[in-house]
Design a protein around this nucleic acid. Structure first.
Lengths: 253, 253
DNA sequence: GTCTATATTCAGATAGAC
DNA sequence: GTCTATCTGAATATAGAC
């Protein structure tokens, strides 16, 4: 093992360990000492290789997201080439965007469910540097997919597309983020959700596939739901906030 | 102002400030010093009134969630009484569960959007004490609503109901959590999303209503989407792990 | 109940030997 | 590149005066 190789090993080992610990404890609650001791490297190694804790987190994501978003663009390019100018089916767009992500969960070399859970949890972190970082990483791919969805659903206003893309990202992120522990809200373990008898035996790859099977129809159903009826905000709203308007919730059943 | 009153003021002021700062920076990144100085109380006041930082966070939530979940149970009781034994329409169940929450966003006395954003962000926090706390606070209401949804959708397996409830919670949490800053992923401000010309003028109450109008149709569309076709996990998927059970989801729409 | 002062621990980062 | 030792600051929590 030459020095170059040992260096690479150290860097990668830090990234792997940081990915897992940031997922498990969250960014703020994960100390450099915890990371370096778990990775069996010196405390100073993180600052040497990455410069700071913030930069380490960004590198953990960059390693995975550059692949993911390139793959998403490639998938969309392929669909559009096949369609030869026609609008794409929404289901194919969602498959390209969300399916590509969910398949990462099946491949440990791409981070597996550990990375997916980390991503789901970190997307809602309030820290400025994290939001800035994600904005840059996602800008191109989101813009391309928004355009594709607008073309696929010409009767749906662009603002509505953006809202629904947002809802879909949330459904996915939250579902992924909660797949490693007993669910705080639903009170079910993932083993129960996956229909397996023994939750301890649920493999991440099986889980990723089950999640994808369940999630994709849900997202498509939400994306294609009837448009909301948007009421004006009542003029007397401020004086009487609880007044319900008759059109407020005209939901199709 | 007697001592009792001043005491109450201090307690409430700490809770209000903590709610806002936990929302803005996250639990770990919000120090006691930041809270106490913003609330203009002494550093020791939090420990005197609440015992610890963890207990403070729990109290911030208990104050709101006890009202919310009682109201959710009341709304469901009312619907079931009106239905006189018949299954409820899914749209009414969602309105009772999510609508009740979203109306909190319109009422500053109930925490307004600040509390909703805090809730959305905190639901994905990995800290053990937070998950344990939420599990206790939500257990009863979730169980009741799961039962109501199972009765309302008798052809949908219970496991599928649980997954979809989970997806709906995620869509809502994530959408709410992201309503105060430029969206990292969609690249849109809430002003754009709300359809207002000037994002600075978007009032929280208007935003809460807009969000509800957009979210409810999406959730209902997802909930009522065709059931997924669940493939067997290929036999050679791994050596062995967890073979799919054929009775798990044998269901047509 | 409130305040000052402090105990105790731990954080991220770095200097400099090897 | 790696390691030891340490700097500097900040965190939660508490003791004890008032």
């Amino acid at each position: 093992m030459n020095e170059q190789k040992a260096n690479q090993d150290t860097r990668e080992r830090i990234l792997d360990v940081a990915e897992r610990l940031f997922m498990k404890h969250g960014y703020e609650a994960t100390s450099m000492r915890l990371i370096t001791s778990a990775a069996e490297v010196n405390l100073a190694a993180v600052n040497y290789h990455f410069g700071s804790k913030e930069a380490l987190l960004c590198e953990v994501f960059r390693r995975r997201l550059s692949w993911l978003n390139a793959e998403r663009l490639r998938a969309l390019d392929l669909l559009e080439a096949e369609a030869a100018g026609a609008p794409l089916k929404p289901s194919l767009i969602l498959e390209a965007f969300f399916g590509t992500l969910l398949r990462m969960g099946e491949d440990p070399d791409l981070g597996g469910m550990t990375f997916l859970r980390l991503l789901g949890r970190t997307l809602t972190e309030p820290a400025e540097f994290i939001r800035t970082f994600f904005a840059g990483e996602y800008a191109e791919v989101i813009e391309r997919y928004k355009q594709a969805l607008c073309r696929a659903l010409p009767d749906v206003p662009r603002a509505e597309i953006v809202w629904r893309l947002h809802f879909m990202l949330g459904a996915m992120s939250y579902a992924i983020a909660g797949t490693d522990v007993i669910q705080v809200v639903t009170g079910c373990e993932v083993g129960d959700l996956a229909g397996e008898g023994d939750s301890a035996t649920v493999d991440d790859r099986v889980l990723a596939r089950r999640l994808a099977e369940r999630l994709m129809p849900f997202l498509l159903g939400g994306l294609r739901a009837p448009l909301p009826h948007l009421g004006e905000v009542p003029r007397d709203f401020a004086e009487n906030p609880t007044t319900a308007r008759k059109d407020e919730m005209a939901l199709a059943t």
